[in-house]
Amino acid sequence: MTAFEHRWNARGEGYVAAQALLLAGIVALPLLRPRWGTPRGLRVAGTALVLAGGTLVGWSGLRLGPNLTPLPEPRTEGQLVQTGPYALARHPVYGGLLLASLGWALAHGHRGALGLSGGLALLFDRKARDEERRLTRHFPEYPAYQRRVRRFLPGVY
């Protein structure tokens, strides 16, 4: 890792920048180049995913409270939250954002936004792995939590 890369991503700023760009693209692509004729069922399913994902993000953010940070580096004074949505998945904010981005792409029937949602999933997987290394250093009880709770989807992944 170069000195620039180390400074840029010391606390995970690079992940946050990439995440912001991908999310902006996911939202903007269907608005800039709309696709007409999306089947009603796909619009309804996509809208349901957007609502479910948004609800999960909101619930997770509220449950984290002052521990919430966009960076994978935990707050020095933070606590490990293992209740609410965090009893079901270790990264429910990421899971909620993935559901919402997938739903947005489907509701608009936009392949480009769907592709960017796939890119966001890959980014979140990498960011979560980095975050988990940091959380393991910060919280001795984290490895036991990892063994008990899946990363994004309860019972699946």
Rank of each mutant, 00 (worst) to 15 (best):
L99G: 10
W8R: 13
G58P: 02
Q79P: 00
G58A: 15
Q19S: 07
P34H: 11
H110A: 06
V16N: 06
R111C: 01
I26R: 06
L88H: 12
L106I: 05
A128R: 10
A121V: 06
L23T: 00
V57I: 13
R129A: 14
G118I: 05
T2H: 13
Y86E: 08
D130R: 15
P66T: 03
R111S: 14
G115V: 14
E132H: 13
P85Y: 04
P34N: 01
P39Q: 03
N9I: 05
R7A: 15
G109D: 08
P92M: 01
T47F: 10
R151T: 09
N67P: 04
L23Y: 00
H6P: 01
L49S: 08
L123D: 00
L71A: 05
E132G: 14
H91D: 11
A28V: 04
R134H: 02
A18Q: 12
V156F: 15
G61F: 04
R63Y: 00
R33L: 12
T76P: 02
L122R: 09
W36M: 08
A20S: 15
R133Q: 10
P143D: 04
D125G: 04
R7W: 15
A89F: 03
A105M: 09
S60Q: 10
H110L: 09
A3D: 13
T55K: 05
F124W: 03
T2E: 02
A105S: 14
L29T: 11
P70K: 00
G25Y: 09
E132M: 15
A10I: 10
T47M: 13
L123Q: 04
A48R: 13
V50R: 01
L122D: 02
L116S: 04
A48T: 08
G41Q: 09
W104S: 00
L106G: 12
Y94P: 10
T47K: 02
T76D: 13
Y142A: 04
E131M: 12
L62D: 08
P39D: 01
T136L: 01
A105R: 02
R134P: 07
V81N: 08
R7K: 15
V44M: 13
P39K: 10
G109N: 12
L99V: 10
Y86Q: 07
P39T: 07
W59Q: 05
S60W: 00
Q146H: 08
N67E: 13
P66A: 07
L23H: 02
P85N: 10
L135C: 01
L68E: 06
R147F: 00
R63L: 07
M1G: 15
A144R: 14
H6Q: 14
G46C: 11
L42I: 06
V57A: 02
Y142S: 09
P34W: 11
P140T: 05
Y86I: 07
A107Q: 02
R33D: 05
G12I: 01
R147N: 03
Q79R: 15
R33A: 13
G25D: 14
P34F: 11
G119C: 11
P74G: 00
G12L: 00
R40H: 11
P74L: 02
P30Y: 06
E77Q: 13
T76I: 01
L29N: 02
G95L: 09
T76F: 05
A105L: 09
E132T: 13
G155D: 10
A107E: 05
H91Y: 13
G155E: 09
V57Y: 01
L21G: 15
V16K: 07
V81F: 06
G115R: 12
E73L: 14
G119N: 01
P154L: 11
G61T: 11
N67K: 00
R11E: 14
